[in-house]
Design a protein around this nucleic acid. Structure first.
Lengths: 222, 222, 222, 222
DNA sequence: AATGAATGAGGATTCATTCAT
DNA sequence: AATGAATGAATCCTCATTCAT
C-alpha cells in the first residue's frame, strides 16, 4: 500500500527569515490571547497582528490548535525559567520565601491569562491540560518539599499536611497574582509580596518570621 | 438610525408548562457549561439536553448569550444564598471561620466552573464580568470587615491590611475549592476545611486558634 | 459599550481574479433582482449564479444588504450615465424632448425593477431610499428647469408650476417605462416615445409641437 | 380510498365576535403593510396589532399569504368602490375629469403602498398580480373609452391612441398619487388635482379646458 | 373559539483550512 | 516562502405553522 497522503506537516524553518516570521506568529498569538481572549484567537487575526499574509500561517503551523500549543509551551517555559531559584540565594527561610513569592507573582502575572484559558475547557486538547497540570505540580511539589524540610528541622508547624498546605498557599499566591494582573486590585508589587510572604510564614508557623512575635504574645509559653 | 427591528424580547412564560420548559433550559445550560465547557454551550445542545426542540430555545431566550446571563445569575444567586451565615452561629471566631470556609468551599465547588468561564474573556459581555466582580467583592468585603473587627478587638494581628489579607485568604479558599472540584486533588472535604481554617487562622494570628500553641512555643515572650 | 467585534470590512480585491469574481457577484445579484425579485436575492443564490462557492460571497461583501447597496449604486450610476444628454443635441425644444424621453424610457427600462424594489420598504436601509430619491430629484429638477426656461421664453404655458408639472410628467414617463418593461403593454418603443412626447408637449402648451395645430383649431384666436 | 386529511380550511366566522376578530386581523394586516412594509407583515405582528393571541391567527386564515390575499382584496375593493362616479356628476368633460382625478388621487393615496408591494414580485402568488392588473385595467379601460368618446365627439385630439394615452395619463396620476402619499412632495391636494387635470386636458387637446386659450394663442388658426 | 407553547426547515454568517499563483 | 482568493461545514437565529390545553 502506498503511504497515506498526509498534510505536509510544517517543518521548522531553515532560514533566518523563516524563523523570524514564525516567532512573530507565536508572539502575536500570545498577545492576542492575553489581551483579547480566546475568541479573538483566529489564524486570520494572528497573521494580521504578526504582519504576514493570511495563508502564511499554515506555512508554519498545522492548525490553530497547533499554534495554541506553541504559545502555551512558550508561556509555560518562560514561566518555569523565570522561577528557578537564582543561584545567589540566601539561606534564611523567610527571605527565600519572599524571593520565591516575588518570582512566582511576576511569572503568573504574565502567564495567568493564557494558562487559565487552557485550564478552562478552552481547548479540547488533552495535551494542553497536561502542561498546565505539570506546571502546577512543579510548584506545589517544590513548595511541599520545602515545607517538609522545614517541619523536619523543627522550623514549621508539623501538624500540617505538606501537600495540602502547599496547594493552599500556592493557590493563594497564584490567585492573587491573577487578580493583580487583572488590574482589579490597586496594591503595588512590594506590598503584595510582603503580605503574601507574611501570611504564608504565619500560616505554617515559620520560626523567625516577622509576625512570630505577635503570634507568641499573650499565649502562655509552656 | 432608522427603526431598529426590535426583537420582541421573550416574555416570561405565563403557564406552568412554560415555566417548566424554561427552567429545564437554564438547568441544562448550566450542566453543559459545568461538564463540557463553553464550546459545547450551543443553543442546539442545550435544547437537546433539556429535551425540547431547537426553536423552543428562542421562545425563552433572546440569544445564546441571554441564556448565559441567566445561568450565571442563577449560579451566582445560589452561591450567595448558600453562603449567608446560618443564624444559629457560634460566637467563637475560629468556629465561625471553619463554618464559613465550609460554606464557601461548597458554594464554589459547584459554581467555580461557571464563574471561571466568565472570569475569562469567555464572553464579550461586560455585564457578566460585573456579576463575578460583585460576588468576589461580597466575599472579600465581608472577610475584610471580619478581620478588622478581630484586629480592633485585639484578637488578630493588627499589622495586616484587612482588604489585601482578605483578598489573599479568600483567594486561597476559592482556588482550593476550584482545584477540589476539578477532582485533581484527593483530599476529603473535612480535611480541606480543617486545613484551610487553620492556615487562615494562623495567617492572621487569630487568638485561641488550634495552632496558636505551636506559634508561641520557642518564641521568647516579652 | 464594550469593544464591538468589528467585522474586517472586506477590502477591495487586489488581484485581477478577485476583481472578476467580485464583478461577477454584483452582476449576478442584479440579474437575480431583476428576474426573480427580492425574495430570491440570497447570498447562496447569488454565489451560485456567479459560479463561485458559498463563502466567497463574504470575501467581498459584508452582508446581503451590502451587495444590495452595490447593485443599487451600480444600477443608479448606469442610469444617470445613460441619460446625460448627448452633446450633439438639437436646439429644437420638441426634438430635445423626444430625445430625452427616449433616453429616460430606455434607462428606466432596465433600472425600474431594481429601483422600485428599493422604493418599497423592501429594505430597512435608509441609505438606499436616499439614492432613489436623489435619482428622482435629478430628473425632476432638470425637467423643472427646462420648463421654466421655456416659460420664460414664452414657449410654454406660464400658468403651470414648474416643479409640480415636471413631477407629473416625469412620473408619467417613469411609470410608462415601468409598465413597458413589465411587458404588459404591447406598444413598440417608437410609438411610446412619440406619444409620451406629444402628450408632454401638449400638456405644457409647447409652441411648435406636432399637436399645436389641433389645440388651436376651433378656438377663437384673440 | 379515504379522503386525504387536509387542513381544516378556516370557515367564515359565524358569530359576531368571530367576524369582529377576523376584521380586526385584516385591518391590522393592512396597517402593518402600509406603515412598515412587507417585511413586518408577520402573523405574529398582525395578531399582536389586532390584540388577539398568537395562534388565533390561524383560526381565521390558512396562512400568511391567505391574509395578504384578503388585505389586497379589501384594498382593491375599497379603491374601486371609492372611484365609481358619484351619481350627481356634471356633464362638462373637464369637470368630470377634475372630479375623476380627485377620486383617483384619493383612492391611490391609501392603496398605493399595498398595491405596489404586490406589483413587485413581493408575493410568489400569481393571483395577487392578477388583481392588481385588473384594477389597472379597470381604470385604463375606462379612461380609454372616455377619450374615445371625446375624440368621436370632436372634443379631443383624434391623433392619439386612446389606450396608450389613457395608460400614460393614468400612470401620471397614479404615480403622482404615490409620490404624494409618500409624503415627499409638499403640494396640497387641490393644487395637485388642478394641475393633473389641466395637464391631462391639455395633453389630449380637450376643447373648453382652462388652458385651451394659451394653446391657441399665437398659432395661426386655419 | 382562544391561547400560547412547541416545532423545525430555512436563511444568513463565520471561520478554519486549502489551493492556485 | 508568500500571497490572498476560494471553500463549505458548522453555527446562530427567524418565523410560518402546528399542537395541546
Amino acid at each position: 500500500m502506498g503511504r497515506q497522503r498526509t498534510k505536509p506537516a510544517p517543518t521548522p524553518p531553515t532560514t533566518t527569515r523563516g524563523r523570524r516570521t514564525r516567532d512573530a506568529l507565536v508572539l502575536a498569538g500570545r498577545e492576542i490571547l492575553e489581551r483579547q481572549g480566546r475568541s479573538a484567537f483566529s489564524p486570520e487575526a494572528v497573521a494580521q497582528a504578526a504582519g504576514v499574509s493570511y495563508g502564511t500561517f499554515y506555512t508554519y503551523f498545522e492548525s490553530r490548535d497547533d499554534l495554541l500549543h506553541h504559545v502555551v509551551r512558550s508561556v509555560a517555559g518562560e514561566m518555569l525559567a523565570a522561577s528557578l531559584a537564582p543561584p545567589d540565594m540566601t539561606d534564611d527561610p523567610y527571605e527565600r520565601l519572599v524571593e520565591s513569592n516575588r518570582l512566582y507573582l511576576r511569572a503568573w502575572d504574565r502567564a495567568s491569562k493564557v494558562l487559565r484559558l487552557v485550564d478552562q475547557g478552552a481547548s479540547a486538547d488533552e495535551g494542553l491540560q497536561q502542561i498546565v497540570l505539570e506546571i502546577r505540580e512543579f510548584y506545589v511539589g517544590r513548595a511541599a518539599k520545602g515545607l517538609k524540610r522545614l517541619q523536619d528541622a523543627g522550623l514549621a508547624n508539623p501538624d500540617l499536611n505538606p501537600r495540602l498546605t502547599a496547594l493552599a498557599l500556592g493557590s493563594m499566591v497564584e490567585q492573587v497574582a491573577h487578580a493583580h494582573s487583572s488590574l482589579e486590585e490597586p496594591f503595588d508589587e512590594d506590598t503584595v509580596v510582603d503580605h503574601l510572604s507574611r501570611l504564608w510564614a504565619s500560616a505554617i508557623g515559620l520560626r523567625g518570621a516577622p509576625d512570630a512575635a505577635w503570634a507568641a504574645r499573650g499565649v502562655s509559653a509552656p
